[in-house]
Simulated assay, not measured.
Amino acid sequence: MTTPLPEGYTDEDGARTLALNEIVVRRKWRGTGVADQLHEDRLKNRSEQRVTLLVNPRAGDGKVQALYERWGGVATLQDA
């Protein structure tokens, strides 16, 4: 992080944050909306206050991160 975070921002109680890693689907399913549906299904009805999405910004020459950004709600480390 390049700027100070608000007090308590990183405090965890075991149920505050869900960490979600990149979703990978087989090549023949890419571009069909399956990954988006899996992503949405995984996040609905969650009790956590927030989700941390772990994505390699270089994966697919940046295409993976761009996809998540199109889905909304993604902040890069520079934005945080």
Rank of each mutant, 00 (worst) to 15 (best):
M1F: 05
M1Y: 06
T2G: 07
T2D: 10
T3Y: 02
E7P: 03
E7T: 08
Y9H: 10
T10S: 13
T10K: 13
D11P: 06
E12V: 13
D13Q: 08
D13P: 06
A15F: 15
A15W: 15
A15K: 15
R16T: 09
R16V: 03
T17F: 00
A19I: 14
L20C: 11
L20A: 12
E22P: 10
V24G: 13
R27D: 15
W29K: 15
W29G: 12
R30E: 12
R30G: 11
T32L: 07
G33W: 07
D36A: 14
D36P: 14
L38M: 10
L38P: 06
H39W: 15
E40G: 12
R42I: 12
L43S: 00
N45M: 13
E48V: 11
Q49P: 00
R50Q: 08
R50T: 00
T52C: 11
T52W: 10
L54S: 03
A59Y: 04
G60H: 01
D61G: 11
D61P: 01
D61K: 11
V64C: 05
Q65L: 13
A66M: 02
Y68N: 01
E69D: 08
R70I: 06
G72I: 06
G73E: 03
V74G: 01
V74L: 05
A75K: 14
T76I: 00
T76C: 03
L77G: 13
D79M: 08
A80M: 11
A80D: 10
